[in-house]
Design a protein around this nucleic acid. Structure first.
Length: 542
RNA sequence: GCGCCAGUAGCUCAACAGGAUAGAGCAACGGCCUUCUAAGCCGUAGGUUAGAGGUUCGAGUCCUCUCUGGCGUACCA
C-alpha cells in the first residue's frame, strides 16, 4: 500500500514540482476513520508555498493518477491531511504474496553485500552473567538478527579482557578458596570475589589435584582455571537464550599482534601525546574533546582506553561497513574518547553506531537490589531463565526501548510469567497450527482463488496489519529498535485473535473457508518470522 | 559543580523524523465457551504527559529554566 502511494506521488511530482522539495511521509493513522494511510504533505508545504494547506491538498489529489480498483476514496481531513482508503480487494491481495514467500516475506536486501559487526555482552570472565548483562545480550542478539534480516552479513563479537587487576584478584580469590577447601585457615579478603561459584571451582580443583597445586602461584593455574570455567558457564547461559558468538576477541591479542605499539607510535608521530607525571597522555582536547586522558600509566601499564582504541581500529581493518557497539550507560562516557582517537587515526567513524542501553534496576518486593559481581550481590541470568524460561526472558528484554530505565521486579516477574504478553503471541501461532491440524480432515485447503471474500472488518483489519509488516521490521532494523518488533507483533496477534473469534473456518461455505484458511496460514508465517527475529520459539501447541 | 539518559494511567511501558480524540499489558469491575485451543474475545473505569514559560496551523515529542531519579565525570574496566 505504501509503495503504491509512493509511486503515485512520484508520478504526480512530474506536474507538481513542489512535491520534490519535501520528504514525503506516509503513516498509518491512529484513528480508524482517517483511512489506511495518511500524509501530511500539504501541511508541510503550506508554509513554503504560503497557501492554505487544504487547497494544496486538493491540488495534489487532482494530480494523483490513482486507479479505482486500488484506491476507493481520498479525503482531505482536519487542517489538511490527505487520507487514503484502499479497496478491500486490493487489501486482500497481500495473502498470495505472503504465501508465495512464506517466512521470507518482508525480508529486505537493502544492505546485501554489506558486512556488519555487532559487539555486545563483552563481560569480563570474572563471574556469571547477571540479569543486567541479560538486557545487553538480548538486545545485542536481536539487533544482529534484524541486521541480517535487511541483508547484512553479521558477525557477533564478544570482547574480553583476561589480564589486569580484576583477573589477578580472581585468581587469588580462587586460590584462597582452594586452600580453605583443603582445610587451611585463611582469611578471605573482603574485596575479593565473594561468589559461591568460586568455591565450586575450588572444589573441582581439590578433586582433581588434591593438595598438589597449593604452592602454585595464583597468577598461574588458578587464574587460568577460573577464567576457563567461568567462560564455559557464560557460554552455556547465552546458549540457553539462543545466543552464540562468532568471535571472542581477547584484548591481550592486541599486545601480541603489536597493534597497541602501532597505535602509540602513530599517536606519537602525529604529536598527539605528551608525558606528564611519568604517564603518557593523549591530547584529546586537540581532537575536540573535553579533557586529555592518560593512555599509559606511570607504572607502564596502559589504561583501558588504549586497547579500546586499538581494538576499534581492527574492526575497521577487518573491513566492516557497519560497526555496532552495545553497552550499558555506565560506559557511556568512554566512547567519545575512543571515537575521537580512531577518527584521528584516519578511520571513518560514521560507520560506528554506538548503542547505549539504560540499566536494569532489580527490585525485589520493594527493595532495590544493588548488583555487584565482586560482592556476590546479584541475580544471575541463569537463575532468571530457570524461573521464567528463555522465551519470557528474551521477550521481556526485547519489549522495551533500550533508552528507558527498566524496573525489574523479580517477584512480579515470577508471578506474571503466566500473563506475559509473549504467550499472547505464541498462542496465536499455536491456534493457527491447531486449525491446520483440524482442517486437514475436513478437506479444506488454503486457497487464494477467493480472497475477495475476505471483507469483514476483522479480516480486513488483519490484512491491513499484514501490509505493515515489512515497513515495521525494516524500520526497527535500521533504527536499531528491537522493541518495535515486539510492539508490532502484539498488534498483529491481536488482529489475528479477533479474526479467530469472529470468523469461523470450519463450518463456513467452502470457498470462504478456503479463503480464510489462506489468511490464517499467511498470518502464521508472519508471526513465526517475527518471533524468530526476537529469538523466541513459535510453538505448534500450547 | 559539569555531562549523558530519563520522568506519560495504581504498576510496567508504547506513541514511527512535531500531526488529528496520548495507547497497550498487568491490576480492578462487568459480560462471552453444546462448533477450529477462554494463555482468547467484548465492554467499564483509570491522564493537567513532573512543574513553569516559549517556538507554530499543531508539542508527550523542539528550546529555556526548576524539581526528581539513574549513570558517568580516575594513572578502575
Amino acid at each position: 500500500m505504501k509503495e503504491y502511494l509512493e509511486n503515485v506521488f512520484k508520478k504526480a511530482s512530474e506536474n507538481l514540482d513542489y512535491l520534490n522539495e519535501i520528504n514525503l511521509q506516509f503513516s498509518v493513522p491512529q484513528q480508524k476513520g482517517f483511512g489506511d494511510f495518511s500524509t501530511n504533505a500539504a501541511l508541510m508545504l503550506s508554509k513554503k508555498l504560503k497557501k492554505n494547506p487544504r487547497e494544496i491538498a486538493r491540488e495534489i489529489i487532482d494530480n494523483l493518477p490513482v486507479e479505482k480498483e486500488i484506491i476507493e476514496k481520498i479525503e482531505i481531513a482536519g487542517p489538511g491531511f490527505i487520507n487514503f482508503f484502499f479497496t478491500p480487494d486490493f487489501v486482500a491481495s497481500i495473502v498470495p504474496e505472503v504465501l508465495n514467500e512464506k517466512e521470507l516475506f518482508g525480508k529486505s536486501n537493502a544492505f546485501a553485500g554489506k558486512r556488519a559487526i555487532v559487539e555486545f555482552v563483552s563481560a569480563n570472565p570474572t563471574g556469571p552473567l547477571t540479569v543486567g548483562h541479560g538486557r545487553n545480550a538480548v538486545i545485542g542478539d536481536t539487533v544482529a538478527r534484524l541486521l541480517e534480516w535487511v541483508g547484512y552479513d553479521v558477525t557477533r563479537e564478544y570482547y574480553f579482557n583476561n589480564a589486569g587487576r580484576q583477573m589477578r584478584v580472581l585468581g587469588e580469590s580462587l586460590k584462597f578458596r582452594y586452600l580453605q577447601e583443603l582445610g587451611e585457615e585463611v582469611e578471605f579478603p573482603e574485596d575479593y570475589y565473594q561468589g559461591g561459584y568460586i568455591t565450586e571451582i575450588a572444589k573441582k580443583l581439590v578433586e582433581k589435584h588434591g593438595d598438589g597445586i597449593k604452592n602454585e602461584p595464583a597468577e598461574g593455574i588458578f587464574k587460568q582455571v577460573a577464567e576457563a570455567e567461568i567462560f564455559e558457564d557464560i557460554k552455556k547461559t547465552l546458549a540457553r537464550i539462543g545466543i552464540e558468538f562468532d568471535e571472542f576477541f581477547n584484548e591481550h591479542s592486541l599486545y601480541e599482534s603489536g597493534k597497541i605499539d602501532e597505535v602509540i607510535q602513530k599517536f606519537k608521530e602525529m604529536n598527539l601525546t605528551y608525558e606528564k607525571d611519568g604517564a603518557l597522555w593523549l591530547r584529546l582536547t586537540e581532537l575536540g574533546n573535553e579533557a586529555d586522558k592518560v593512555i599509559i600509566k606511570s607504572t607502564g601499564e596502559p589504561t583501558y582506553r588504549l586497547p579500546d582504541i586499538a581494538y576499534h581500529t581492527t574492526k575497521f581493518e577487518r573491513g566492516y561497513d557497519l560497526i555496532v557497539d552495545l553497552f550499558g550507560s555506565d560506559h557511556a562516557a568512554t566512547y567519545p574518547d575512543v571515537l575521537a582517537a580512531v577518527k584521528a587515526l584516519g578511520w571513518d567513524v560514521s560507520k560506528v553506531k554506538v548503542l547505549i542501553h539504560q540499566f536494569v534496576t532489580i527490585v525485589q518486593g520493594k527493595e532495590v537490589v544493588k548488583m555487584s559481581t565482586r560482592k556476590a550481590n546479584y541475580v544471575t541470568l541463569d537463575a532468571l531463565i530457570d524461573e521464567v524460561g528463555a522465551d519470557v526472558v528474551r521477550y521481556f528484554f526485547n519489549m522495551r526501548s533500550m533508552t528507558s530505565h527498566l524496573n525489574f521486579d523479580i517477584d512480579l516477574a515470577k508471578k506474571q510469567s503466566d500473563e506475559n504478553p509473549v504467550f499472547y503471541l505464541q498462542y496465536a501461532h499455536a491456534r493457527i497450527s491447531s486449525i491446520l491440524r483440524m482442517v486437514a480432515g475436513e478437506g479444506i485447503e488454503a486457497k487464494v482463488d477467493n480472497i475477495k471474500l475476505l471483507t469483514t472488518e476483522a479480516e480486513q483489519n488483519l490484512l491491513k496489519k499484514m501490509w505493515q509488516f515489512k515497513d515495521e521490521i525494516f524500520n526497527a532494523a535500521v533504527n536499531f529498535e528491537p522493541h518495535k518488533v515486539a510492539a508490532y507483533l502484539e498488534e498483529l496477534a491481536a488482529a489475528f485473535h479477533k479474526f479467530y473469534t469472529d470468523c469461523r473456518i470450519i463450518g463456513s461455505p467452502k470457498k470462504l473457508a478456503e479463503a480464510r484458511m489462506s489468511l490464517a496460514l499467511a498470518s502464521k508465517h508472519l508471526i513465526k518470522s517475527g518471533l524468530t527475529l526476537l529469538g523466541i520459539s513459535a510453538p505448534e501447541k500450547m
